[in-house]
């Protein structure tokens, strides 16, 4: 894969420098068979330094979590070497295994094997609550 230009795939750009690996993990990119390039500390006019992730071939990745982690990220969809879509990121309705519930009375504290699920309870206030106990996520 040529890192500068992919024919088909996704370019996740303007990632805050240093957080590419977190995003790599959150998106489950380790499970992909295709080529994935992580570029660290690239020059950015906007951010000074930034990280970039390029994913070859695959475009159907659930990117919702990015809207929560860093709404400044941009996602470009590349087909036939052309930029065909810039995806708009918004806060996802649901976050799975992104946040941890800190409420000691929550069932997730007693059963660590449970999936951590948070739902968006107030979009304007960017408030997420635990699906199980409704405790607010700490920001």
């Amino acid at each position: 894969m040529n890192i500068d230009s992919i024919k088909n795939g996704l370019v996740i750009d303007h990632i805050r420098a240093g957080s590419a690996m977190r995003i790599y993990n959150l998106l489950g990119l380790d499970e992909l068979d295709c080529t994935v390039a992580i570029i660290k500390n690239a020059q950015s006019a906007k951010l000074g330094r930034k990280d970039i992730i390029k994913i070859d071939t695959v475009t159907d990745i659930d990117l919702d979590v990015l809207g929560y982690v860093d709404p400044g990220i941009t996602v470009n969809v590349i087909r036939g070497g052309e930029l065909v879509e810039k995806k708009q990121l918004s806060l996802p309705e649901r976050l799975e295994n992104v946040l941890r519930c800190r409420n000691p009375r929550c069932i997730t504290s007693a059963e660590p094997g449970l999936k951590q699920v948070f739902f968006l309870s107030d979009r304007a206030g960017k408030t997420y609550r635990c699906l199980y106990c409704e405790a607010k996520a700490e920001k």
């Binding site: 409420n103 059963e111 449970l114």
Partner: peptide, 10 residues
């Protein structure tokens, strides 16, 4: 009935 919140949802 469960002492932990959310157990019945699970």
């Amino acid at each position: 009935r469960h002492p932990k919140e959310g157990a019945p949802l699970v």
